[in-house]
Write a protein that binds this DNA or RNA. Structure first.
Lengths: 354, 354
DNA sequence: CTCACTAGTGTAAGCGATTCCATCAGTGGG
DNA sequence: CCCACTGATGGAATCGCTTACACTAGTGAG
């Protein structure tokens, strides 16, 4: 019991209750509730009066009471492995702003440690703490997805397939293909690729499809892939910087182009090349993927995967499902956009960009 | 009503209720609740049996029911102006991980648009949707803070003072002073400063104290500040890159050192200088503030403001207040740590770092 | 002119916990 | 040997809404 004062008569300064609005307009709480939530029939006149009274009193429905009674909580979970990395922060921003605009809350579940995974799903989602969830770049166990879906909790996945739920991702294979073909068309034969680790716990291998696109494009063009040019980094600028610097340090077997799975790594590659005295794009062409703001200053040619839009879109799908509209559980493969800047040029050209 | 089946007897596969645990161990729900929440006396034996039963049934208390009944919601709001900028994402990460570890949820309120401000405070906080809130780099109206505090909602501010609530920030003035003095000691006389805009809506002017530190250090050293060297950018790498490139384009009145209010801007400055053929630190010394991971690859000398730690610390303060411990409402000024790298060197030295 | 419907409203039963109060068995002091 | 007290427990009243169901009055069809 929080406030069991002198029965319901006195309530010094607490926020107004539904009851207060009801008595102010001389109607039952049922009608007031219907008027305010928009569920169930209420005559236009009554509705207007109730809304006015509610506004005047500054009434806002108790979140927990209404959630408990209705089973809906206007709270959507966003589950992701990192918040402090560009892609995730940007997707999160897209999701959160869309949800907020629709009157939903975004609750953040950062699964960096992997430790809280179980409790997040079991405790929060299944216990109706959340109405829906967006899962970013994380692999759910087959049973988990099913469990959530069958409990009627809409799900949407970003950057990795989620059995039975709609999924959004950029066409990574295609992006990898296009990036590589761009370099090949410019005459490059010896192309290095730098991506992330093949897999990290429950998170999706973020760059493997891009790597696959690279490999396919190379073999289609009949170009050999040198073991030495296949770099693996941690997606950071610094990591890529170091890897690429090592790679380029020996002039005799240096690639003429680098395809980095993300712009941050691409920018690191450019810096590394410059630190070795190479000129971009004269001595080395570099292409990335992301449209990271960093790339602009580096003149980085890249492929825009529209991270923010992916987030917005995911949120829309969830909202639509919550509104009762049927949403097909397929994979929504966004096509990425090529952004040509000055970090790539024809092989052997004299420093002028492509 | 959500599930008014055949009275309470049938409940096909829904999650177990407190009642179920109670009947399993043959005790009242009151005792079970006490055992599980740890409030009120329960004999050790009973407690053990209850916990075992709860675990076996996979019982987890309904979030909304317990919030409604107890008035506590285990949900803490994080209010910030951006999520997709390094500092904020990092602080958020620190806050969220600390809260999650303590069993609290972090609800995200991104006030980028400024539009939702009112509703966030009024609707969510005051309606007991949130137990507490961390306000990052945002200025609350004097009345708002008071209203929240008097409603018993713990508040903590990061990066800007919040009347009546504990506040955390790095000592920006001191950091600005030290960064500038570092350059002065190296013999630089003509030092440029690049910071953010003086003020942006309700958010705190993020770099004005750093600028003030710069100005004070310069005047203490008797050095003139050239109007032309006072740059204002938008905190982005690209923005700083452009500004600094313009600044350095005219060789005759070029500063010999740049102090950037953030590492991202400092890195942009370095790139700009390099693009103009300048060598760092031989031709230009650059210092930043942040310890942004980007800085490492650029060899950027910087001052670490420990963004992640600030977040962690803020979360701890909130948790402590929620636990009933008194927390003094003062300003907690963290001292930043100097990180010497290779982007600064004595004026006129031959390329060897400081 | 009835009758089946619908729209508008009220009554009251939950939602699933927490917690106040009463009850009751031990227990150490006087 | 009695009593005030403490620790463990149960009964039942909330917390503040939503909504099933009952009811009334109007409305167009037959």
């Amino acid at each position: 019991m929080i406030a069991r004062e002198l029965s319901a008569t006195r309530r010094p300064q607490g926020p107004p209750r539904l009851k207060d609005v009801a008595s102010k307009v001389g109607m039952s709480t049922a009608t007031v509730s219907r008027a305010l939530t928009g569920r169930g029939p209420v005559s236009p006149g009554t509705k207007r009066r109730i809304e006015a009274a509610a506004k005047e009193l500054g009434f806002v429905a108790s979140y927990h009471a209404s959630s408990l009674a209705s089973g809906r909580s206007r709270n959507i979970g966003v589950v992701l492995p990192y918040v402090d990395r560009w892609f995730f922060a940007t997707v999160l921003d897209g999701i959160a702003s869309t949800l907020t605009a629709a009157g939903y809350d975004a609750a953040l579940y950062n699964l960096q440690g992997e430790n809280f995974r179980e409790s997040v799903l079991t405790d929060f989602l299944l216990r109706k703490r959340l109405d829906a969830a967006a899962v970013v770049s994380l692999r759910l166990a087959p049973g988990e997805t099913e469990q959530l879906l069958s409990a009627g909790i809409p799900l949407v996945g970003i950057g990795g397939s989620l059995e039975g739920a709609p999924t959004i991702s950029v066409d990574d294979l295609n992006a990898g293909l296009r990036a590589t073909n761009h370099l090949i068309q410019l005459g490059h034969c010896r192309i290095a690729f730098i991506g992330g680790p093949p897999e990290a716990g429950r998170s999706f291998p973020m760059s493997s499809d891009r790597r696959r696109g690279f490999e396919r494009a190379m073999s289609t063009a009949g170009l050999p892939i040198h073991e030495r040019d296949q770099l693996v980094s941690d997606f950071t600028f610094l990591g890529a910087y170091q890897q690429v610097k090592n790679l380029l340090a020996e002039p005799e077997q240096r690639p003429t182009a680098v395809f980095a799975a993300t712009d941050e790594m691409a920018a690191g590659a450019i810096l590394a090349a410059r630190d070795l005295g190479l000129e971009i794009p004269r001595d080395l062409s570099v292409i990335g993927i992301d449209a990271h703001p960093l790339g602009e200053a580096f003149g980085l040619t890249t492929i825009d995967q529209q991270a923010h839009h992916q987030g917005t879109r995911a949120a829309q799908l969830l909202l639509r499902q919550l509104a009762g509209e049927p949403v097909t559980a397929g994979h929504e493969l966004h096509r990425a956009h090529f952004i040509a800047r000055s970090s790539t040029a024809p092989l052997g050209s004299n420093s002028s960009p492509a």
